[in-house]
């Protein structure tokens, strides 16, 4: 395999470290956002590197993933070419596609892959990438903290999907209240919507 392109290994968070504080953070903390996966929270201003540092003590890896920008998620600098984006995506897919997950971790890998996919789909489309870059430069981020949710999630049972989804819904709800401003719904979801509107 060709898994050692330089730019991949430089970024400390890539591949996003797997959960090592295993008893504390249940797998499903990565499944928290079934709706408009992951993408949304990438706007948080906190840098990935800082998050990782915190992560050493109290922040779960999945939370870190949610804080990552699409670039950080793919482990690439913001200046990369589209060829490099593709390469990075394929390497991460090779690693985190649920088809290649170790036994019992398909669900976790599924969540992870969906995020990577979202990042890739955005960054590999030049116009969407430009919009994403612009939004990022403007520092658009969420009005609510995903952290609060993740804390609540700690005592969640593994397969408690419904519960997770409920908490997500409340998040969604809060986002949709600000729908008019267009700033608080998932970035990718908004883009999808815009495209739908254009095409319909």
């Amino acid at each position: 395999m060709c898994c050692s392109h330089g730019f991949i290994s430089k970024i400390p968070t890539t591949p996003p470290p797997l959960v090592s504080r295993r008893t504390h953070f249940a797998i499903p903390s990565t499944i928290r956002l079934p709706i408009a996966t992951g993408s949304a929270r990438s706007f948080r201003t906190k840098s990935a590197a800082t998050a990782v540092k915190d992560g050493g003590s109290s922040v779960s890896e999945s939370t870190v993933m949610e804080d990552l920008s699409f670039y950080e998620l793919l482990g690439i600098p913001e200046t990369v070419t589209s060829v490099e984006i593709k390469q990075a995506y394929k390497q991460l897919a090779r690693k985190y596609h649920p088809d290649v997950s170790p036994p019992g971790r398909a669900e976790e890998y599924t969540q992870r892959f969906i995020r990577v996919q979202e990042a890739y789909e955005t960054l590999s489309d030049p116009s969407r990438r430009a919009m994403y870059d612009r939004d990022m430069a403007m520092g658009i981020h969420f009005a609510f903290s995903s952290r609060n949710h993740s804390r609540n999630d700690e005592n969640m049972v593994k397969s408690e999907w419904r519960g997770q989804w409920q908490s997500q819904l409340s998040g969604l709800r809060r986002r949709s209240m600000h729908k008019e401003s267009g700033k608080n719904s998932s970035w990718a979801a908004r883009m999808r919507k815009q495209r739908e509107e254009c095409s319909s």
Partner: peptide, 22 residues
Amino acid sequence: DIDASNMLRVMAAVVMPGGENP
């Protein structure tokens, strides 16, 4: 959602404007 084994799951919830939870 469709998972890696192609299982399809459909979920629906009702939320009222201003409310936080279903």
